[in-house]
Amino acid sequence: MKVVILCGGQGTRIRDVADNIPKPMIPIGNYPILWHIMKYYSLFGHKEFIICLGHQGKVIKEYFLNYQINTSDFTLQLGNKESIQFKNKSQESDWVITFAETGDKAMTGSRIRKIKKYIGDDSQFLLTYGDGLSDVDIDKLIAYHQSHHRILTLTGVRPAGRFGEIMCTDEGVVSEFNEKPQAAEGRINGGFFVCNKELFDYLPDNDDLVFEKEPMMHLVKDQQLMQFNHNGFWQPMDTYREFVLLNGLYENDNAPWKKW
């Protein structure tokens, strides 16, 4: 399946870490968090990516355009750029990446709608955010989605902090979706979606369209939103503390998502 990654939002800046780069390019070890997300999906065989660009999208483009040079040993004869001889083959050489300019100020729902043409004839696709990591089993997530025959599956997680809440029936049908409640108990939206192509029917042409609001509410009303429970690791990177946490896990070889 193609993997759509939302990387265009201006989001929150992490002071002293991401003043001049978009959040998906904040490093964990030697690679940006976006690379870690893509690497994780690729381990499950999903190596075709659609990156929804917006704010500072040029930085993301330039990173991947120069990827082989920046990650490989090579020999160069000065004065002849064509003489570059790479000494090792990148493990990511089979990745296929589409960089889609979805607007500097577009919201999440609008960004997803704008990449419909790149989904092509595929009946399903994967979707996630460019600033969060998990060890969710992608194979089991897809199998669950295909078992219930509804339009959208999200991954419900239990984080340490409060973000928003999902309520669902014992069968997994989402009955209520509150993106940021004041006080509630339950799981939150951890991203890592599986989508049927019919999702685009819920995304009108509106740059202010927030995927997590009206579209999801309409899917809930139509009983077309399901929840896959994930009890393992999930961690966004929104603060300096979370930046330090993720880097610490990676540097100490204790990163749950690092399965390569």
Rank of each mutant, 00 (worst) to 15 (best):
M237W: 03
A100I: 08
K258S: 13
P181C: 09
N189D: 15
E214F: 02
H218Q: 11
D253M: 13
D19W: 06
G186T: 05
G79H: 06
D73E: 08
I14Q: 02
T239R: 07
Q223G: 01
S72M: 02
I21W: 09
Q223T: 08
I188W: 08
L249T: 06
H36P: 03
P24V: 05
R241H: 11
P215H: 01
S83N: 05
M167G: 10
E82R: 02
N254V: 04
V136Y: 09
V220F: 08
G11P: 00
L65I: 02
A18Y: 01
I26A: 05
H145A: 13
M237R: 02
D121M: 08
N70I: 03
G172W: 02
V3M: 04
D94S: 14
H36A: 12
T239L: 04
L78N: 09
I21P: 11
T128S: 12
Q182K: 12
F49P: 03
N231A: 13
A255M: 10
I84E: 04
I26Y: 02
G191L: 11
L209P: 09
D73P: 00
Y40L: 07
F163K: 09
G190K: 07
D135Y: 05
T153V: 13
I28D: 04
E251G: 07
A106F: 03
G57Q: 09
K259P: 01
L225A: 07
D16E: 13
H36C: 08
L246Q: 14
L6T: 12
W234C: 12
P204K: 04
L199K: 00
G79V: 02
L199Q: 00
T128P: 07
S134Y: 08
I60F: 10
I188S: 15
N229C: 06
Q182M: 10
L34S: 08
R13E: 11
I112A: 10
N70R: 13
L53E: 00
A160Q: 09
I142V: 10
I151H: 04
F163M: 06
F44G: 04
D104A: 06
G232I: 10
S83P: 00
S42Q: 03
L203I: 01
